[in-house]
């Protein structure tokens, strides 16, 4: 891309950013890149504020490790039952840690008031949704990067990273897609810490089933199994589209 081209693009992006939603957007390319820039701006803000304290990440990762350890005692793991139990344990640890983090990211916005400020920004609500979603995926991703090697060690499970990475990424997107919407919903109430897990677990059942089955197929291949990775991707698409549309109604004020 030439220098002049770049400059023109930047100016166009800037005009879109300060104009109200729906007014800017001259051309699909301009709208798309403005959308991406707005999203990344909010993600960068969230990451910066998390990197200052690292409170949420450290608590989430520690909690995930604790879940792994506690389940190890609870199931009395031996060589013969590890392969059956381990994938479920891994995903329960991920989902529990995610809920801890999801509650925090939106709650932090509410306590300090910036969700209102964020909504005052001349950006689309969908931008806010995707920004929070990416932030949550990154937060959960950090936890997973820490937890997977330790899981492989303490459960003594051979982890094929090539196969596991897509499953974990797709599963995390599914959890975060529903989770971002529900964290915003629970934040509208007086008892969000109570309500978030109660609301989110029933909705996450398809994602959890697909993720666990895809993970256990990596450890012990199953003949004639459903195409769980594909299904997981399909669930992600469904939940992402519903949540992206619904988010607007939840935060509207």
């Amino acid at each position: 891309m030439s220098d002049t081209n770049m400059t023109r693009m930047t100016t166009r992006v800037n005009t879109t950013e300060i104009s109200p939603p729906g007014v800017g957007g001259d051309g699909a390319l301009g709208t798309a890149s403005a959308f991406a820039r707005q999203v990344m701006a909010i993600v960068a803000k969230d990451l910066r504020s998390e990197l200052r304290t690292k409170q949420t990440w450290s608590a989430m990762a520690l909690f995930a490790l604790l879940v792994l350890v506690v389940f190890n005692f609870a199931f009395d793991l031996r060589v013969e039952n590890t392969a059956a139990v381990a994938p479920g344990v891994l995903w329960v640890a991920f989902v529990f840690a995610s809920i801890l983090g999801l509650g925090r990211t939106v709650a932090a916005e509410h306590d300090q008031g910036p969700l209102d400020r964020l909504l005052l920004c001349p950006v689309n609500r969908t931008v806010v949704y995707f920004a929070k979603l990416i932030g949550n995926v990154l937060f959960i991703g950090v936890v997973e990067v820490v937890a997977v090697p330790i899981f492989a060690i303490i459960y003594n499970v051979p982890v094929a990273l090539g196969g596991l990475v897509p499953v974990v990424v797709l599963g995390t997107i599914g959890v975060a897609a529903v989770g971002t919407l529900f964290a915003a919903m629970a934040a509208n109430t007086r008892a969000r810490e109570l309500l978030l897990p109660v609301l989110i677990f029933p909705l996450l059942v398809p994602v959890v089933i697909a993720a666990v089955r895809a993970t256990s197929a990596l450890i012990v291949p199953v003949a004639r199994d459903a195409p769980w990775v594909g299904l997981l991707a399909a669930f992600d698409v469904i939940f992402l589209s519903i949540s992206a549309v619904a988010f607007e109604y939840v935060v509207e004020d």
Binding site: V178, P202, L203, P206, I209, L231, F235, I242, A246, Y249
Partner: peptide, 21 residues
């Protein structure tokens, strides 16, 4: 509004649950 969103998302989730189970 929040409850309406849950009413819609929850209903859409039911067939997906059924299929995955």
């Amino acid at each position: 509004r929040t409850a309406a969103v849950l009413g819609i998302v929850g209903f859409v989730d039911v067939p997906i649950d059924y299929l995955s189970v």
